[in-house]
Write a protein that binds this DNA or RNA. Structure first.
Length: 725
RNA sequence: GGGCGCGUAGCUCAGUUGGCUAGAGCGUUUGAUUCACAUUCAAAAGGUCAGAGGUUCAAGUCCUCUCGCGCCCACCA
């Protein structure tokens, strides 16, 4: 053995040993244990967050495998619709091209090829981190059998009236040319202005017999004056005494003279601005809802590229929103309609990818009626069918689920699963749901169809991942492993993914997709800053593996972080655990050398009749206690405690005391029995320590195990866990 | 506006249902060793557990308030 531990020399060799041994496939007849891996993006290298899930999930899998459970860790890769398309678009941009230069099929094919080129990157990196997942079952989110299941879900939901196509205000990114769900919109604080605009009355309201002065106008406050061109009403609160007389009156929209009514609606807050609000149903979520209640028309004045439309009128059509705003304000001022303007701080929705201001636009999109699904998910969590290991995430989850809104699942991108709809006519009122182009519409008899061009929100398909994978891997997998044992993923995708999996899993299978939910935190740098490319503080896990070894990286990710909160990763911490790896190496090197040179008779633990000293009894007791502590903490998902327990035992009990004690007894033995007993103790403690360390530091422990005399199994990975509880 | 969480040694954090002199890693100081150890070992310093009040035989741990910080959600026109 080398004097110092060299991770580079052994890691690859050890991984190969496991793979060739077939140890990653579920073995034996034990109780099934299954984790479905959150599939990394197929086109991207892994980042620190991936290293966290590998560390935790692999520790769980290895522990349960050693405990004798039939353990399956099911890997996969995600096409990651929008994310990947954005990456690809940037590539195109560099070549001076845009995705709009290509037709749907060509673009899809180009991205497909691009993903194929990169698809092994993530897989190879997972292997380098030591992920003991069953590659023979690996799935890709665009596998035809997965798509088939996703289509089946869509069709079933449509039959159950849980899917509808509707005209709604959606969150539109003018750069990426797609709509989003509300989760993909980020908010940014902005210093803006609030403009007060006077709308003159066409005719006084019916107010005979009232004492109130008969007003001639009403003033509204807005941050988006340019959208006034699309106003179809002014709304006030029905309880607002100031405007009682005006409800039902008609005003003339400045600049256009179009006549619009004043309506009363509860959502209007009397305290804000003047208490009167302009209603622009085509460009504001809340206004849209008002328009539905009052049967108001829609006028779209902002188009999909954030430019004013023809409907905005000759003077403004074609202007960018910001230009239109400036011009409108100037025009209003010139014509005397601008009462005042004041500085105003508010938050504005922006695209989470590019930061462009989100334009709320009315558009026809596919929606999932979410309330019935949410109800079942809430009930399942309440009943404990799916348990959050941390109550804080359960509370956050419940709060969101109780306020959930219908889910826009259509995306105007090509990289994804096409929504399997075929329209029978141009106005798209009649359609057939089918994976292939249908022959004939049963409803209207049409034989010509227009294909839906939108694709599903990635989360609609990945929300079905646990059952879709297990139903398409191997015969009997679904029956054996569903519901899976635990879902472990980052808290940032609690709503995006975990909540959707629960809802869709319950809907499709009648069972929760996983029994436990463990959320890990964000990896931060030593100053607790979020890692980002622009800050230059990103720790590339593969670079760490190269420099310090996968075991050191894994150990530093579990050590000193708990409560499923954020994880601080620093070079100091990694170095500390590389030192620990070296300590393990050398303690083992010493132990093994002491067992070897008992040349007289080969070391054989079963042949030794030990005469334990007090010190021996102490270390064996400590070992037992540590095994119990590691086990209990693993059972409770307290990885940091488990790791710390074995770390402390190995270093300070085994190395500092047990080995020191053994030296005297082996070098200057008082009796043959005592020497042999000392050797047996060393062997025993090392043997069990390797097992206890293995879930966290799989490579080094396996390498040493392979050198251990009298080892009972082919590999440590399939050894028996040393503690029953 | 609503919700969640955090504030414990210089730094990063543990501390299970309230129970002995509050712990770990890194860092710092002193000594030893190079005899398995790209070192290691022994020892030490360092905390009024954010602050105030309360419950209790007993509170870092439960309750209330205050201060500071972070995050999430929301139809802030």
């Amino acid at each position: 053995m080398n004097k110092a531990y060299s991770s580079q020399e052994i890691e690859q060799k050890i991984y190969q040993l496991w793979e060739e041994g077939g140890f990653f496939e579920p073995q034996g007849t034990g109780e099934p244990y299954c984790i479905v891996m959150p599939p990394p993006n197929a086109n991207e290298a892994l980042h620190a967050g991936h290293a966290v899930f590998v560390t935790i999930e692999d520790a769980l899998i290895r522990y349960h495998r050693m405990k004798g459970l039939k353990a399956l860790w099911l890997p996969g890769a995600d096409h990651a619709g929008f994310e990947t398309q954005v990456v690809f678009e940037k590539k195109l941009e560099k070549q001076g091209k845009s995705r709009f230069d290509f037709d749907r099929e060509t673009l899809f094919k180009m991205i497909w090829d691009y993903v194929q080129e990169n698809k092994d990157v993530a897989k190879d990196q997972l292997k380098r981190l030591g992920a003991s997942c069953d590659w023979s079952r690996a799935k890709f989110t665009l596998d035809p059998d997965i798509i088939k299941i996703v289509y089946g879900t869509f069709e079933q939901m449509h039959k159950d009236s849980l899917i509808y196509r509707g005209e709604r205000v959606i969150n539109w990114c003018p750069k990426h040319q797609t709509g989003f769900s509300e989760l993909e919109v980020k908010y940014e604080d902005r210093e803006d202005k609030l403009w007060y605009i006077r709308y003159d009355l066409k005719s006084p309201a019916a107010s005979e017999g009232r004492h109130a002065p008969n007003p001639k106008s009403i003033v509204v406050a807005t941050t988006r004056p340019e959208t006034m061109l699309g106003d179809t009403a002014v709304a006030v609160n029905p309880k607002d005494k100031r405007y009682q007389d005006l409800i039902g009156a008609t005003v003339r929209l400045p600049l256009t003279n179009r006549e619009i009514p004043i309506v009363a609606d509860e959502v209007v807050e009397m305290e804000f601005g003047t208490g009167a609000v302009k209603v622009t149903p085509a460009h504001d979520q809340s206004d849209f809802e008002i328009s539905q209640r009052h049967d108001l028309p829609l006028i779209t004045v902002v188009g999909k590229t954030a430019k004013m439309t023809e409907e905005a009128g000759r003077d403004y059509a074609g202007l960018k929103v910001e230009e239109a705003r400036t011009k409108i304000v100037a025009d209003l001022k010139a014509q005397g309609f601008l009462e005042k303007e004041e500085p105003y701080k508010h938050s504005v929705g922006v695209c989470y990818k590019c930061g462009r201001t989100i334009e709320p636009l009315v558009s026809k999109q596919w929606f999932v009626k979410i309330a019935p699904l949410a109800e079942k998910a809430i009930a399942a969590v309440k009943k404990g069918e799916a348990k959050f290991t941390s109550s804080k995430y359960e509370r956050i989850f419940m709060h969101w689920m109780n306020n959930i809104r219908d889910w826009n699942i259509s995306r105007q991108i090509v990289w994804g699963i096409r929504i399997p709809v075929w329209y029978c006519n141009q106005d798209k009122t009649c359609y057939v749901i089918s994976d292939k182009k249908p022959d004939k519409c049963q409803k209207c008899g049409a034989t010509e169809f227009v294909a839906e061009e939108d694709t599903f929100d990635t989360w609609f398909s990945s929300g079905q991942w646990p059952f879709a994978t297990l139903q398409t891997t191997k015969e009997g997998d679904f029956e054996a492993f569903y519901p899976t044992s635990v879902m472990e993923t980052g808290w940032d995708i609690l709503f995006f993914w975990v909540a959707r999996m629960l809802m869709l899993g319950l809907y499709r299978t009648g069972q929760v997709p996983f029994k436990n939910i463990y959320m890990h935190g964000l990896v931060r740098d030593k100053d607790k800053q979020k890692m980002s490319k622009s800050k230059g503080n990103v720790i590339n896990p593969l670079a760490v593996v190269d420099g310090y070894g996968a075991d050191a990286l894994r150990m530093s990710l579990v050590f000193g972080s708990s409560n499923e909160s954020d994880i601080v990763l620093s070079e100091d911490k990694i170095i500390a655990h590389r030192k620990f790896a070296n300590k393990i190496w050398n303690a083992s090197r010493f132990t093994l050398s002491q067992l070897e040179d008992s040349s007289a008779d080969e070391f054989n633990p079963t042949q030794i009749k030990p005469k334990y000293t007090q010190e021996d009894e102490w270390i064996l007791e400590e070992l037992k206690k540590t095994a119990k502590e590691v086990t209990q903490n693993l059972e409770k998902y307290k990885f940091h405690e488990a790791a710390q327990a074995i770390y402390h035992f190995f270093w300070h009990s085994f190395c500092d005391r047990c080995i020191e004690d053994a030296k005297k007894r082996i070098y200057e033995p008082s009796s043959k029995e005592d020497k042999q007993t000392a050797q047996l103790v060393l062997w025993t403690v090392l043997y069990d320590s390797l097992k206890l360390l293995h879930p966290f530091m799989p490579f080094i422990t396996e390498e040493i195990y392979q050198k251990l005399p009298s080892r009972p199994k082919k590999a440590l990975i399939i050894e028996d866990w040393p503690s029953k509880i």
